[in-house]
Amino acid sequence: MIVSFENRLLQFIGIMAIFMAIIVVLFPFFWIFLESVKPPSLGGRPDIWRFELSWENWSEVLLNSSVPLNIMNSFFIAFITVVISLICGAPAAYAFSRFRGFQGARYSILAAEMMPPAILILPLFLILYKLELIDSRIGVVTAHLTFVIPVITWFLIGFFDEVPKDLEDQAMIDGYTRFQAFYKVILPVVRPGLGAAAVFGFVLSWNDLFYSLLLTGAGSRTLPVAIASFWTFRGIELGKMAVAILIAVIPVLILSYFIQKHLIKGIGGSGVKY
């Protein structure tokens, strides 16, 4: 194939643009990592590139701060939120996908997914306050369910839509009830989708700041809230903040790598055009 000079130039510009984009994406991570391994005394010095590698920030944060507790809280909250979401969301998503008369319900799920947290936080705060659940992990789980359940249900509707109906017909003829057909045949088939939805829901809960900020106290504080409190103009906390940020970010990046290809199907859903 003959490639003209003009085409080559365009190609070159394109590759350069992608290269630039990669640098723009990676540089903040790189700089934060550098900051985390600088000796604390050199924190916040943009001119310093050469220094003795120091794990002091890491050991401070991991051994001598509330961050391990915050990680536990975040993990616990995200995990419980996802489990409840799957238990409630999967059967409902299956029903929405298979039975007639649920078109409106699909849109309700979408609407719930789009609900701004600003409108729910006020009543949730007051309700949890009355129930004495402020500064409890279960209170945060309640709040996180309001956005994780709709997302997971919406994802799963799309995945169930792709499973041929003949499969559960076959299972029912093979001697099973509809519900047995659902959990013995259909659920195993959508297991990759379930996994992707669970991971995505976990990430959403793990990443939340707004609800956690307002509903937690010292005992139930999640990692994002803890990170936010690191920035004090008083001390040299930058290195520790960098460590906390990396701890919050790295697991999510690893998890999300595995679900990228499922995300599209999930976000787009199926059967519903805009």
Binding site: D169, M172, T177, V185
Partner: peptide, 19 residues
Amino acid sequence: EPRERDIAMVFQNYALYPT
């Protein structure tokens, strides 16, 4: 219910359980 009828069925696309 289908399971109570003592019948068997072969579908056009076979409907084998993929897992």
